[in-house]
């Protein structure tokens, strides 16, 4: 039975990504480790993404507060805004929005960077010079993305909540202490731990997809563009798929 061309291509790519991930784990836990490059990638992926993440997170918290307020005022429970916004941001909006922004910035940059290296045959040259290109390029970037996204999400949550605090203060008056007391009043480990756990998977998805797309870029400038593009699209979709899985798993507890 011959499957349609698109389906075959999709299944082939899925299997290839799985194999690529397997290779990542094989290479990642065996020496030698590219520590210096890893820290550099952490700096680029984590630290340099912070301004963008901070801006979007701040706006997200602020806007969410302003949007929730009218419907809560109808029920006379505007005092619940901090708790509601806190749960929304910590459980869902913080991780997903930050991961999407991260995918847009990091997924595309990794895809384009590795793609252009592939196109200009720098990867092949690396192999010839005795450096393991997979370790040097893929493992460092994917590890950095996996470890940095949770940090970004935590910082983004905090900035979001501060934005929400300012949003609450437009109509009502509250203190930062009261605001955070109310936020944590209804938060539990069940809210924080799954959100924090899934952010590692988001980071890994963004990193591994970016690397795969770049590593397997087709020849020519067009190939670089399409690999950067598809890295963002696939990693964004994967983020939602992982989110769906995460909510179902965390719902079991």
């Amino acid at each position: 039975m011959r499957l349609p061309e698109d389906t075959r291509k999709f299944l082939y790519e899925t299997g290839d990504i799985a194999r690529f991930s397997m290779r990542f784990f094989q290479e990642a836990f065996h020496p030698r480790y590219e520590v210096r490059e890893f820290f550099h990638q952490c700096y680029v992926i984590g630290y340099q993404s912070l301004p963008l993440v901070a801006l979007t997170a701040f706006i997200m918290g602020f806007v969410l507060t302003m949007q929730l307020r009218p419907s809560l005022v109808i029920y006379g429970v505007e005092s619940m805004i901090p708790s509601m916004v806190g749960i929304a941001i910590v459980r869902e909006i913080g991780p997903v929005i930050t991961a999407l922004i991260f995918a847009g910035k990091i997924g595309s940059s990794i895809g384009a960077e590795l793609g252009s290296m592939k196109v200009t045959e720098q990867i092949d040259a690396m192999e010839v010079s005795g450096t393991n290109p997979f370790k040097y390029l893929v493992v460092t970037r994917t590890m950095a993305a996996t470890l940095m996204l949770p940090v970004l999400i935590i910082l983004g949550d905090a900035i979001s909540l501060y934005g929400s605090y300012l949003g609450v203060n437009i109509w009502d008056t509250t203190t930062l202490t009261l605001f955070f007391t109310q936020v944590f009043e209804f938060l539990t480990y069940i809210d924080l731990v799954p959100a924090f756990t899934k952010s590692f998977f988001f980071g890994f998805a963004v990193g591994i997809i970016g690397c795969y797309k770049g590593y397997h870029s087709e020849k020519g400038t067009e190939g670089v563009g399409s690999s950067a593009n598809s890295a963002v699209v696939v990693s964004s979709v994967l983020i939602f798929v992982i989110d769906l899985l995460a909510v179902q798993i965390s719902d079991l507890f």
């Binding site: 630290y47 912070l50 940090v151 935590i154 938060l187």
Partner: peptide, 18 residues
């Protein structure tokens, strides 16, 4: 950057722990 993230995480966990 990492320390800030970790500090916030620990703060949040402590707050929930309270």
């Amino acid at each position: 950057f990492v320390m800030a993230g970790l500090a916030l995480l620990i703060f949040a966990l402590f707050k929930l722990g309270q």
